[in-house]
Computed example of a mutant assay.
Amino acid sequence: MKPVFDPTQYKITSKANWNTVAHEYHYNWADQQVGPFKSTAEVVRLAKIKPDDKVLDVACGTGVVSKEISQFLGPQGLLVGIDLSRTALSIAKKSISFQNSNFVEMDAENIGFSFKFDKATCQYGLMFFPDSVKVLESIRNILNHNGMLAVAVHGLAEDVPYFSTIMKPILEHIPDIRPEGTPTVHRFGNPDSLRAELASGGFSDITVTKYDFVYKPGTFDEYWTDYMRSTANSIRSKIEGHGDAVMEKIKNDARNNASRYEKDDSIVFPWTVLVATGINQ
């Protein structure tokens, strides 16, 4: 029997994990705009930022979307980023020179501001919120009438093999690795599911655009090391706790899964991203 999902403990664990991996996530992935982070420019483009807009970047992380947004804002514009990770927020503050910007440690399920925003963005955060509808409703509450939300999420497991190549054998060999009901990276990878979620949060005029990117993690061993150190960091100790034999089985199965994406000993992963926009009417 799997352990019961505890949303509060999940947030505590997520916060601790992001404080640990934020630097590597930023400097090796997000800031380099490799693979899925080619979507950053698309999220901001679809948000149609105007110079005097007041913009909220939800789950802003290390600030890559915020930095892109700041390029479109003028002296009358405002940029606010919120996130649970202090380490990620510190990186965001250092990387953005826009004067009218502020970064705040805040839970996206309980957004609280005394003024309204014109636009809101959220890249690779929506699928990880325990109560995503509550987050969407919180965003709507601080958006002006006809304000716009733009969100990016990863595609389905078969369309984002970077995650599933290793996670599938982890789940096969350690089925109780995470509590039943834990949010997953592919949660809104189906366009219809993403569209329905924004509608449940009260948004209208919803559009979903699909992008197909490519990510090259190097050799299998390089990919394995990066994945275990970053993506699987929060569960790595649990995996290692099952012993070397189980770890070796997971690695061998993952190597076999990765072989279909190898070209000249280097892996080339396809990576589907969905970007949705919705209006607060």
Rank of each mutant, 00 (worst) to 15 (best):
K134H: 11
S95F: 08
F129I: 07
G147M: 00
D6L: 11
A276C: 02
T225F: 15
K67Q: 09
D264W: 12
V43L: 10
L149F: 01
S230P: 01
N280T: 11
S114H: 15
K119I: 06
A108L: 02
S164L: 08
K48E: 08
F163V: 05
A88T: 03
T165H: 05
T231D: 15
S230K: 10
N146H: 07
Y162A: 09
S237I: 13
W224Y: 13
D131G: 07
I82P: 00
I177E: 04
I174V: 05
W29Q: 14
A92M: 01
T121Q: 07
T20H: 10
K11L: 11
F163M: 08
I111M: 01
D221V: 11
P7T: 05
H154N: 09
I12K: 10
H23T: 12
I96Q: 02
A196P: 08
I49C: 06
Y227I: 07
S97K: 14
D221I: 13
H145F: 15
P191K: 00
N17P: 01
L73M: 00
K251S: 09
D264F: 10
K48W: 08
V151E: 00
Q33R: 15
L171Q: 05
Q281K: 15
S237H: 12
K119E: 05
D57R: 10
R195P: 08
M228G: 04
D83G: 01
W271T: 03
K168N: 07
F37M: 09
C60Q: 12
R229C: 09
I12W: 10
D118Y: 05
D31T: 11
V44H: 09
P161M: 03
V64E: 11
Y261R: 14
H23I: 14
I239S: 06
I82S: 02
L136V: 05
S193Q: 03
L84D: 00
I177N: 06
H242T: 09
A152N: 04
P130H: 13
M148V: 10
E262N: 14
D107Q: 03
V44C: 08
D212F: 10
A152S: 03
A41Y: 15
P191L: 05
T277A: 04
A276S: 06
G243S: 00
D253C: 13
V104W: 04
A157R: 05
T182H: 08
A157F: 04
Q33S: 13
I170N: 02
G112N: 14
F98H: 06
Q76W: 04
G243W: 00
L156T: 03
F117H: 04
I267L: 15
G147T: 00
L73T: 04
R260C: 14
D265C: 13
T8Q: 13
V58D: 05
T182S: 08
E240C: 10
V80H: 02
E109N: 12
T121L: 08
E68L: 15
G202E: 02
K48Y: 12
